[in-house]
């Protein structure tokens, strides 16, 4: 790793910004080291994004509205899903996967020793830029859907952005909670695949689900907060209760993840000792 200016030398917000910049630089260098696999990843990502949209097009070949959502309204949800999938692949999965490996091999020692917040570094030390494709695909699908819908109000757009951020925070919280189990049960690499599989359910409007499955998708693995809720805000159908729900769930999960991370670090004894 090249010499970066020591972040510990500065104080306050400047320090945080320089930490983030250093992390971003190193993460990009790591990703660029495997160029051939980067190209294949981009190609596969393109096909996968098409695979997410295609079933929806097939369904609406046969039905005019599904659970009260028209094709373009549902596409808006899918657009947010693609953005979520991209961000998870880009930022969350590589980093938290690395934490699991660090706990197993003991290399987390080096991270904990650094004079910055361990959770921040653990969450931002790597990126998988090829996954940015999904974010791009999400933006394209979103633009396509919006072109066929009445234009959203600026309040609606602002609310959608806020709900999206709250939802992303909630998903990040769940992810940290899952990863923290690796401090107790070492082999949990697979759990993150299970989480990815659960997130898959967020690609449709939440009205498609009923009963406890809906509860699961709005509270436990709150993927609907990222996909359906912002879409509802853009469509002008989000109610105050929706917003409150999103804030409570996101806040609760973030808080729980912070507490659990602290507890897990206390429990961490390093594989080498």
């Amino acid at each position: 790793m090249p010499e970066a200016p020591l972040p510990a030398m500065r104080r306050g917000p400047a320090r945080w910004i320089s930490v983030l910049a250093a992390l971003g630089r190193v993460a990009l260098m790591n990703a660029a080291a495997y160029r051939a696999s980067f190209v294949v990843d981009v190609l596969v990502g393109a096909v996968a994004s098409v695979g997410v949209v295609l079933p929806l097009l097939f369904v609406y070949e046969h039905a005019g509205s599904v659970a009260g959502w028209t094709l373009h309204q549902a596409l808006l949800v899918t657009a947010f899903f693609l953005v979520l999938q991209g961000l998870v692949g880009l930022l969350v999965e590589p980093n938290l996967g690395a934490v699991v490996e660090g706990v197993r091999s003991g290399s987390l020692d080096y991270l904990v020793l650094k004079p910055v917040d361990a959770q921040l570094v653990a969450s931002l030390q790597r990126v998988a830029p090829a996954k940015a494709w999904d974010v791009l695909a999400g933006l394209v699908v979103g633009a396509w859907a919006l072109a066929h819908l009445p234009p959203p109000t600026w309040q609606g757009a602002l609310l959608a952005l806020g709900l999206l951020l709250a939802g992303l925070a909630a998903i990040y919280g769940v992810w940290v909670l899952v990863i923290c189990t690796s401090f107790w049960f070492v082999r949990v690499d697979n759990l993150r695949f299970l989480l990815t599989a659960a997130l898959d359910a967020g690609r449709w409007p939440v009205g498609v689900y009923r009963g406890w499955v809906r509860l699961l998708l709005t509270v436990v693995v709150p993927v609907a907060l990222v996909t359906s809720f912002p879409a509802m805000a853009l469509l002008g159908t989000a109610r105050p209760g929706t917003v409150l729900h999103a804030l409570v769930v996101a806040g609760g999960l973030l808080w729980a993840s912070r507490l659990t991370w602290r507890g897990a670090l206390r429990h961490y004894t390093s594989a080498s000792s």
């Binding site: 079933p55 929806l56 369904v59 046969h62 039905a63 599904v66 659970a67 898959d200 359910a201 690609r203 449709w204 009205g207 498609v208 689900y209 499955v213």
Partner: peptide
């Protein structure tokens, strides 16, 4: 996941 979608479509 696919079942949920088609189930709603066939409601």
């Amino acid at each position: 996941v696919m079942l949920a979608l088609w189930n709603a479509a066939a409601a």
